[in-house]
């Protein structure tokens, strides 16, 4: 359900970007979404399509989502591994001294606009 909250922030940020750069219409919006950001991509696109018609510069926009794979760092054996496959425990040394390097972000990469 937090998709709706994030979409509201995305719409606000794009409105401001349009104003700053004197843009009249925004087309493709490329968003990088981390694999473990907890964002349900289909829900996110649904929420976007619901909100974009309320923002004149965004009416014809299209959301393109790119997934950022999640990577965890093991501080015990100094290696990285795939978060989704192995979770919190390092598959090499079975240490729990691990933390997420990336994969929980939600970044606006670029927009097409005129």
């Amino acid at each position: 359900m937090h998709e709706m909250g994030i979409v509201l922030h995305l719409a606000k940020t794009l409105d401001e970007t349009a104003e700053e750069n004197k843009l009249t219409a925004i087309g493709r919006v490329v968003l990088q979404v981390g694999e473990v950001s907890g964002i349900m991509t289909d829900l996110f696109v649904d929420a976007w399509n619901y909100f974009k018609v309320r923002h004149p510069v965004l009416v014809n926009s299209e959301l393109v989502l790119e997934t950022i794979p999640a990577v965890t760092w093991c501080d015990n054996c100094k290696q990285t591994y795939e978060t989704v496959k192995y979770g919190k425990e390092c598959p090499y040394c079975h240490s729990g001294e691990t933390w997420l390097l990336r994969g929980n972000e939600c970044i606006i990469k670029e927009i097409e606009a005129e």
Binding site: H9, T17, I107, E110, E112
Partner: peptide, 10 residues
């Protein structure tokens, strides 16, 4: 269309 790099956290 022009392409703008935004690179901002939502």
């Amino acid at each position: 269309y022009q392409i703008l790099e935004v690179k901002e956290q939502v």
